[in-house]
Design a protein around this nucleic acid. Sequence first.
DNA 1: CCCATGTAGTTAGCTGCCTAATCACTAATA
DNA 2: TATTAGTGATTAGGCAGCTAACTACATGGG
Lengths: 177, 177
Amino acid sequence: MTQHHPPHGDTGHGAPTLDQARRQLSRYGLSADPQAVLVAARLMAAGARLGQAGEAHFSRFGLSTGRYRLLADLEDHGGEKSPSQLAASLGVSRATVTGLVDGLEREGLVARRPSTEDGRGNVVILTETGAGRLRELAPDHFARMEAMVGGLSTEERAMFLDLLARLVEGMSALTAD
Amino acid sequence: MTQHHPPHGDTGHGAPTLDQARRQLSRYGLSADPQAVLVAARLMAAGARLGQAGEAHFSRFGLSTGRYRLLADLEDHGGEKSPSQLAASLGVSRATVTGLVDGLEREGLVARRPSTEDGRGNVVILTETGAGRLRELAPDHFARMEAMVGGLSTEERAMFLDLLARLVEGMSALTAD
DNA sequence: CCCATGTAGTTAGCTGCCTAATCACTAATA
DNA sequence: TATTAGTGATTAGGCAGCTAACTACATGGG
């Protein structure tokens, strides 16, 4: 499978090639650097792949990436936080938090409690069941995280973190204007 | 920027910190390397951020990331391809392609035509309107892609591509079993 | 003190992604 | 040839993310 025309870089799955970038640019007579375009495209593809792999990973514990992140953030904050704070630290909208908390509450991993300080506010609390779930998955989870990065040396990891941070800064170019 | 309260590594948005990784590991007495965990977490966060930035970017042209990728892949393949081939080269399920093509067809950017070779197959073709849309957005799109990566030198980009490819390989550790 | 404006949370409705099930057709094989 | 297996595409149902709109409460200025 995956052998359409031999000559040209047919991706075969989600990973773009330098040839593709070159073809696209030449088609419109643009002078952008194909390597730069490739970096951007590969990062997008890798992000999407990792997203899917993450979902598959967390589903083993009956969680999704979003639900896991919410639980972990809650635990990291003493097991109690308002939906707005959760939205801010997870980097998602409040509406998304409502949905995540709905699902987690249905499974008894978190609970909602009215805020004592603000009459319109809630507090989301991590239940014993929720904390237990985190304890269960931690060994496997962190082992896999480490294994994923295991192909890089300490120096390479540091280098990667630096380069990635600079690319994340550059992402504003996509939304600017 | 990115330093809110000095005491605790409060993320402030989606970017995890080394302190968080350390706290999580120590909470369960795990010996995984915090730096490795940080790399994995940052890559996930960056992927999610880039995904959102990409959606915002493409929405300027009335497209989503998925729809753009489908159009671009179609053009790169002579403007004609079956849904199954599209699913394979985009790295998504056939059902997703059905949805994307539905949307693109509604806007006249692609059309479906029965396959001449296989009685149950379709061929998705890029319409003139669809090709025109790609032409319109190309200059802005590639300029932004290049700008996003502009903070890295050629050598750094090559390094990043290498490191990223090795991390993508490592992603199988998440789904392996 | 009351009203205007703002903010917390939810709801409704959209998109994109997935899996599983279904339908139509092809192909292989007894 | 007729049956069985396999494959192309769609449909149905689910989750997570978004925006926009709405309710309930908070707060600050006239």
